[in-house]
């Protein structure tokens, strides 16, 4: 079943800028007839440079904005229908870039309880939800801590637990690791992968880090509001020149394989990880 389905989704808005010479208005087409579908339980990555429209797309999933043309279904709900807004937001949770902007309480467990409390969940169930959510992100021992004293990666995992406590079917992550150090990034990525594999959560990950995107089952590339590439990481990343033209990176190993091929070495082009690269070189060496 499809968790998210977009049909001819377009979003247009009027940008008003204040300058010293007065106000200026221009029409911006942030999303241009986008079609896509994301299966329930899958893990997809959305790539694109800043201003490409990927965050606008993410906001549609949560009905923070609505299509100006076309339709978007989330868990079968049409986001155009205002009466369904709470069903939609409960189906698809969102985690943003900066954890500091998402934490509301002074104690971790209270922060996690905030969502379910607002949903009117009975208090004995809230307790269980809080524990389960903290357990899922590996932060149960920090239940009584103050979020302010945690590291960036830990805060982000608390933000994820806060979303989990609302029991969504899908979580949209908008550059969740952009502000974290390598250790924090690794912890958050492991948490995301675990939610997908063990809890069957549908994951939409917006990222600039290609080493994160290669872990997805499917990759979508958005450029200037258009869906320009779509496929498995092995289909998308070997298109080195195309990706660079969209202002994106490719993993260093993929680029190395691409360059070696150009020099006449018959090395596979869909290498995405260090292990695959090491394997490919060893194999080439043994066949020479």
């Amino acid at each position: 079943m499809e968790m998210i389905k977009a049909e001819n989704l377009s979003y247009e808005y009027i940008k008003v800028t204040e300058t010293e010479k007065g106000t200026k208005e221009e029409k911006i087409l942030a999303l241009n007839h986008v079609n896509l579908s994301i299966e329930q339980g899958s893990f997809v990555a959305v790539l694109g440079h800043n201003g490409s429209g990927k965050s606008t797309f993410a906001k549609h999933i949560n009905a923070l904005v609505r299509p100006t043309e076309g339709v978007l279904w989330v868990n079968g709900y049409d986001t155009q229908n205002e009466e369904l807004i709470w069903d939609i937001r409960q189906s698809a949770g969102m985690v943003f870039q900066n954890p500091d902007n998402q934490l509301v309480a002074t104690v971790v467990e209270e922060d996690i309880a905030f969502g379910p409390e607002n949903m009117g969940v009975p208090s004995e169930q809230i307790r269980k939800r809080v524990e389960d959510a903290l357990n899922a992100v590996g932060m149960l021992e920090y239940k009584q801590h103050s979020p302010a004293k945690l590291s960036g990666g830990q805060k982000q995992r608390i933000a994820i637990a806060g979303v989990l406590a609302m029991k969504p079917k899908c979580i949209v992550f908008d550059e969740p690791t952009a502000m974290l150090d390598p250790v924090g990034r690794k912890d958050v990525m492991n948490t995301i992968l675990q939610l997908n594999k063990e809890e069957g959560m549908t994951i939409v990950l917006i990222t600039h880090y290609m080493d994160e995107a290669v872990k997805a089952e499917k990759v979508f590339v958005i450029d200037d509001g258009n869906m320009v590439l779509e496929g498995t990481p092995k289909e998308v990343f070997p298109q080195v020149e195309t990706l660079k033209s969209y202002g994106l990176d490719v993993p260093q190993v993929t680029e190395t394989a691409y360059e070696l091929k150009k020099m006449g070495i018959s090395i596979s082009q869909d290498i995405l990880t260090v292990e695959e690269m090491v394997g490919a070189i060893c194999q080439l060496k043994s066949t020479i």
């Binding site: 440079h49 800043n50 994106l248």
Partner: peptide
């Protein structure tokens, strides 16, 4: 470069 896209 924290938080910027590859182009930025």
């Amino acid at each position: 470069t924290a938080g910027l896209d590859p182009k930025g």
